[in-house]
Design a protein around this nucleic acid. Structure first.
Length: 322
DNA sequence: AATTGAATCAACCGCCTCCGT
DNA sequence: CACGGAGGCGGTTGATTCAAT
């Protein structure tokens, strides 16, 4: 037996809203508010609609200050940046764009922006190949000295075309992004911060579910793990953390932060890194406030936010996947 | 002008989370 | 702690509009 429906499906109207219905709903809410009870609202307002439908209509269309029409370049940039940082958390993205609804942004992304970015990428760099696997002569130009040592560990890399096997593809993405010639990459909290970088990433290394990267592309503290911040990917639940493998690249592998993995041992040419310590710090589920701060700091120099200790120079990046 | 396929976007569905009991 | 109801969310659908032929 399934859950009880939220309303009497037989007696509610579905489909597009008429102007009369819109008027009724708008007038009622302007006069009485929602009363904190959407389920009861349609009856009170004289509407033969499901409460959820009323809520959706109000939030997405009728409420004041809703912005319709073309998205601006700035809005595009914000959407790209946040999508790269948090994935399809449309309500959170919408919260950063006054007047825009999650539904709007979702539709815009799915129907236009994604294609726009792809087209932009293909037009600007039609010859572009997947980022080559980095070698010792392919050291990132932006301050990321740790990557050179990281590359040395990537000896098992076999197929540069697809998939996140071991650690290497992600590091090549990282290197490519950093070599993208885009200065914002080095200063903002989101590594994939520009449309071009995002497209480049998506094109060759499609986003995997449950992928998350910790760390900073810029200076970070090294002693307590407090500098690590979510740079890219999606949330992961704490109960899944034990299934993660990953690595940590720092200037000194001896570090053992509470959110870090122990450095991988070389096992027949393969890195075998194990989740080693506490897992709490950067779980989006648990740290919504930190996460919000991260979002709100997007676009600011990372040294000004709470996640970065500007006095420390050691750099690190962590990738986790499963 | 008619047809057809693509694009758009409002709305729905079902799952998850939160909160009161 | 368990349960149930309501709100919230993201994915998907389908009607409508647009563009190409």
């Amino acid at each position: 037996m399934g859950r009880a429906p939220c309303c009497d499906k037989a007696n509610v109207k579905k489909g597009p809203w008429s102007t009369e219905e819109d008027s009724k709903l708008r007038e009622y809410i302007e006069k009485y508010g929602t009363g904190g009870n959407w389920i009861a609202l349609p009856q009170k307002a004289g509407l033969q609609r499901c409460g959820k439908s009323c809520r959706l209509r109000w939030l997405n269309y009728l409420r004041p200050n809703i912005k319709h029409g073309e998205f601006t370049d700035e809005e595009d940039r914000i959407i790209c940046s946040l999508f790269a940082s948090i994935g399809s958390r449309w309500s959170i993205i919408a919260a950063q764009l006054p007047g825009r609804t999650d539904n709007d942004i979702k539709n815009y992304w799915n129907t236009k922006l994604k294609k726009k970015l792809m087209a932009m990428s293909m037009t600007s760099e039609p010859h572009r190949k997947p980022p080559p696997f980095p070698s010792s002569h392919h050291t990132p130009s932006v301050s990321f000295p740790c990557l050179s040592s990281l590359y040395k560990d990537c000896t098992t890399y076999q197929d540069p075309t697809r998939s996140f096997t071991a650690f290497e593809p992600m590091s090549s993405v990282q290197a490519d992004l950093l070599n993208n010639g885009n200065t914002t990459l080095a200063t903002n909290s989101s590594l994939i911060h520009t449309p071009e970088a995002l497209v480049n990433y998506m094109q060759y290394y499609p986003m995997k579910e449950n992928f998350l990267m910790f760390g900073s592309e810029s200076s970070c503290t090294s002693s307590d793990g407090s500098s690590g911040h979510i740079s890219f990917g999606r949330e992961m639940k704490q109960e899944n953390m034990s299934h993660f493998q990953g690595f940590c690249a720092t200037n000194g592998y001896e570090d053992n932060h509470n959110f870090m993995l122990n450095p991988g041992t070389n096992n027949g040419g393969k890195n075998v890194n194990q989740w080693a310590e506490k897992q709490r710090e950067y779980n989006l589920e648990n740290d919504l406030e930190d996460f919000k701060r991260l979002i709100s700091s997007s676009g600011n120099n990372c040294c000004n936010n709470n996640f970065i200790d500007e006095n420390k120079t050691q750099e690190k990046v962590m990738y986790f996947y499963y």
